[in-house]
């Protein structure tokens, strides 16, 4: 006999795909955790790097920031960190903004602003690295 659970109206195929009614399944949850895991070493790098360069002047700061390793780490920190912020803000807004229009609008604005800021940060680091 079929192992299909008779207490659900969903088809066996829908259950196997496990994507739910929004068709995204656990994607959002998974990306929040994936970025969280990556941010553990990235955050520690950022904090230690900032502390090390606290007394540095402009030239020293730029020399550090434009080096390939620092630039790559800073770009990763910003890209992963701002993406994590956007994912987290979406959940907070979904939970606390109850007017449907305001909810969707605030999520869109938050995501646009965060991805724009991330792009600005990355371009700034690249400008220092490749120098113009």
């Amino acid at each position: 006999m079929s192992t299909h659970n008779r207490n659900t109206l969903r088809t066996p195929l829908a259950l196997a795909r496990g994507l739910g009614s929004a068709k995204h399944g656990t994607d959002h949850w998974w990306h929040q955790r994936l970025t969280a895991l990556a941010l553990i070493p990235l955050t520690l790098w950022f904090v230690i790097a900032v502390i090390i360069h606290l007394g540095a002047d402009y030239v020293e700061m730029v020399e550090w920031l434009r080096s390939p390793y620092s630039a790559a780490m800073m770009i990763l920190f910003v890209a992963v960190g701002f993406h994590h912020a956007a994912a987290g803000m979406q959940v907070v807004l979904e939970d606390y903004v109850h007017n449907e229009f305001a909810k969707i609008a605030s999520i869109i604005v938050t995501k646009f602003v965060l991805y724009a800021l991330a792009a600005i940060c990355i371009v700034s680091v690249l400008k220092l690295t490749f120098g113009v």
Partner: peptide, 30 residues
């Protein structure tokens, strides 16, 4: 956890300002 998450999200503005200032030159960075 949620409040600090929102607070850190606002902190992205300072990181952006700091990196843009570094890229713009000594005066903006100062």
């Amino acid at each position: 956890h949620r409040i600090t998450g929102v607070g850190l999200t606002i902190g992205t503005l300072l990181i952006t300002w700091w990196l843009v200032a570094a890229a713009a030159g000594p005066d903006a960075f100062a």
